[in-house]
Computed example of a mutant assay.
Amino acid sequence: MDTCQSFSIGPAPRIRVDSVGSGELLVLLHGIGGNRRNWRVNLPALAAGLHVVAWDARGYGDSDDYDGALDFRDFARDLVRVLDHFGAGRAHILGLSMGSWIAMDFAANWPERVGTLTLCATHTGFAQFSDAAKAEFVRSRKAPLLGGAEPADIALPVARSLVSPSASAEALDQLVDSMARLHKGSFIKAIEAVVHTDYRDSLPRIAVPTHVICGTDDPLTTADMAREVADLVPGAELTIIPGAGHLVNIEKPQEFDAAAVGFLRRHAGAATDA
């Protein structure tokens, strides 16, 4: 694999990225408790024949925090900036959990800039849940932090709630490290914003090759939820990886890489400018 370069893309809030490889652009979008480090185990396989960029979303990792509330579409607007920085008219987009909803939002509003979509550990958005369920999602994640806890204090129990029963100690440690690196204020903003997502109406309009990947043991975004997404997107492929929890790329990296790379290789050229 080529040497991985890390740098920030401006203007503010500056977006930190890891960039490796050459060819068509593939952008990797992490989840609500993640950062660009979540993809490092996958980069060698994904960067074989592609230019892979993994970002820290605004308010995450080494990217800038920002003033005011978060409009969830800000993430997609930042993705436009990333593509523009690399001179890419279109790109392959691969997102996990919150990253998948950013990808859906980007595809709904900038469809001409999407070559392929890979949606991992996903569902159609939080509008499908009751108001009570959404409120509990927000409360359970905000309450400890508002009560004085820091992300590092909640990292282990949250990580344990996301992995499969068979997850390795190494996979759990990666999740704990990821959660411990969260920016407290920006994480709370993301929690509050993500519950307003709803892509049930836009998914049937996706007109690019789409791949949905999930784990059998994901307690948060279940296999049935993934099937619903795949059923709504015309021609979408579905891969269910046995024994994987929510962070399927970390728990089962070889199986994830094989599925993701296989799909991307079959559709190479989809992101090439006309």
Rank of each mutant, 00 (worst) to 15 (best):
C4A: 14
S6W: 03
A12E: 14
A12S: 15
P13Q: 11
R16D: 13
D18Q: 12
G21C: 11
L25H: 07
G31A: 11
N35T: 08
W39A: 06
W39L: 05
R40C: 07
N42H: 03
N42D: 08
L43Y: 06
P44F: 05
A45K: 07
A48H: 10
G49S: 08
H51F: 02
H51W: 01
V53Y: 04
A54V: 04
D56C: 09
S63K: 12
D65W: 09
D65Y: 03
G68A: 10
L70W: 06
L70Q: 10
L70F: 07
F72Y: 14
D74S: 15
A76E: 05
A76Q: 07
D78N: 09
D78G: 13
L79Y: 05
L79W: 03
R81F: 03
V82P: 11
H85G: 04
A88H: 05
R90I: 00
R90E: 00
A91K: 09
I93T: 03
M98A: 10
M98W: 02
S100P: 09
D105Y: 10
A107T: 00
A108Q: 06
N109H: 15
W110K: 02
E112V: 00
E112P: 00
L117N: 03
L119M: 10
L119K: 08
G125M: 08
F126Y: 15
F126Q: 07
A127Q: 10
Q128M: 14
F129G: 06
D131P: 11
A132N: 11
A132P: 08
A132I: 08
A133T: 13
K134V: 07
V138G: 11
R141V: 12
A143N: 05
P144L: 09
L145D: 04
G147R: 05
A149S: 14
A149H: 09
V158D: 05
R160D: 08
L162S: 10
V163Y: 02
V163L: 04
P165M: 06
D173H: 05
D173Q: 13
Q174M: 13
L175G: 14
V176E: 15
D177P: 00
S178W: 01
L182V: 07
A190G: 15
A190F: 04
A193L: 12
S202N: 02
L203K: 02
I206M: 10
T210K: 00
C214N: 13
G215V: 04
L220K: 07
L220M: 14
D224T: 11
M225R: 10
E228S: 11
V229E: 01
V229D: 00
A230C: 08
D231G: 12
L232K: 10
P234Q: 07
G235A: 11
G235R: 06
A236H: 06
A236V: 12
L238Y: 02
T239M: 00
I240T: 10
I240V: 15
I241H: 03
P242A: 06
G243I: 00
I250W: 01
I250H: 01
D257N: 15
D257P: 01
A258G: 03
A260G: 01
V261E: 01
V261H: 04
G262R: 07
R265S: 03
R266D: 06
R266H: 08
H267M: 05
H267E: 05
A268G: 06
A268N: 02
A270M: 06
A274K: 12
